[in-house]
Design a protein around this nucleic acid. Structure first.
Lengths: 199, 199
DNA sequence: CTATATATTAAACAAACGATTAAAACAAAT
DNA sequence: ATTTGTTTTAATCGTTTGTTTAATATATAG
């Protein structure tokens, strides 16, 4: 089992180290060692460190936003269902890949413009349908705030995990339960916010 | 005017570049150039790049958490006032220093344990008072969730700014208004969440 | 003014890093 | 079995990077 091609071994190793340390702090030699391959093979298959990096980031963005767009643009799914599914799916994804959000957001800050096409596609499909669903229910909240609140409440704990633990607010071993609990609460909080925007 | 000592010039330049690019991507030569000083002076005054970095991070953490702890632990300030002031102060701080949160959280992820003392102090003072204020009002939300929600809703837009803009959800020039608007809304949302936790 | 401490500079060092090269090992095709 | 194309290896190249050194300039004190 586990017969990976050299190319796959490099990608897996690169994904692990890039997401852990970021672009600048990652050495091609670290990737080669983690992958168990000769250093020159990295350039043989991917040309350069930067090339390899872009491919990884593209895949991670797909993970993050491919999740969102298809069902958000489905007009048969109710707003309530969308909220619950979104929170649930993101919680699952981030639990399995805790370093993902801060990595993506950090690297996006420096090279945002390179990945525009992926992000814009994710939005244009879902925006009008969501907008209608909000208005039809009488909710006056803007779509930007609506998305920002769901995503922020769900993702932020993963970004701030080190801070939570370093400050003693939470212990490392309590974190999974903390997240599982929020997974149930966040949709209720979002509903409370929505209802308040209607009054 | 503007007569800075060499030491101060280095610190200002270092703060700017470190927060912009992170530790690994920052070159000592960039700092020297930005500060307008000779490269060797950096080591003359601070010994090493790492030393200088630690000093900067410590100052940034003070900025970020010194804001919080003094008045959160004041039992004369009502919960409502605390929420409003916290959101207002953080919004102001981050508006003037947009790169701060992602920088701090990113570097904290790798070196969390080094800065424990600052963070733990900020917590132990305010936690029991806040806890009482929540319980006395009949709110069942946990203090971790309470803090996480306020801070998350306030800070996350700054962390996700590049994403918001790259995806086209928001235009760069709309961002300040977006933030100003949320500054008013977030306290109301927090109240809505609190009330819901009482029912 | 002179001596001494402090601050600044240009140059260089040593290690780390991304990338390349040339040869060797391997696989596939004829 | 030989040729041809592909993959892998060890060694090295040219830069970059953090740091140090030795000389020079500037300030301070007696």
């Amino acid at each position: 089992m586990e017969v990976l091609t050299t190319e796959q071994k490099i990608i897996e190793a690169a994904r692990k180290i890039f997401t852990q340390k970021g672009y600048a702090a990652t050495k091609t030699r670290d990737i080669a060692e983690e992958a168990g391959i000769n250093l020159a093979l990295l350039n043989y298959y991917f040309g350069s460190k930067e090339n390899l990096f872009k491919q990884i980031v593209n895949e991670e963005l797909e993970d993050l936003f491919g999740l969102m767009s298809p069902f958000l643009s489905d007009s048969n799914t109710t707003l309530e269902e969308k909220i619950r599914i979104l929170v649930k799916d993101y919680t699952k994804l981030l639990t399995e890949n805790e370093d993902l959000p801060i990595f993506v957001l950090n690297e996006l800050k420096n090279n945002g413009n390179i990945f525009n096409h992926i992000l814009q596609q994710a939005r244009t499909m879902s925006q009008p349908i969501l907008d209608n669903q909000l208005k039809n229910n009488g909710y006056t909240i803007s779509i930007s705030d609506f998305i920002m609140n769901i995503v922020g409440l769900t993702i932020f704990p993963f970004i701030a995990k080190s801070l939570l633990i370093a400050s003693g607010i939470l212990k490392e071993e309590e974190f999974p339960q903390f997240i599982r609990n929020r997974e149930k609460l966040i949709p209720e909080w979002i509903f409370a916010i929505l209802k308040q925007s209607r009054q």
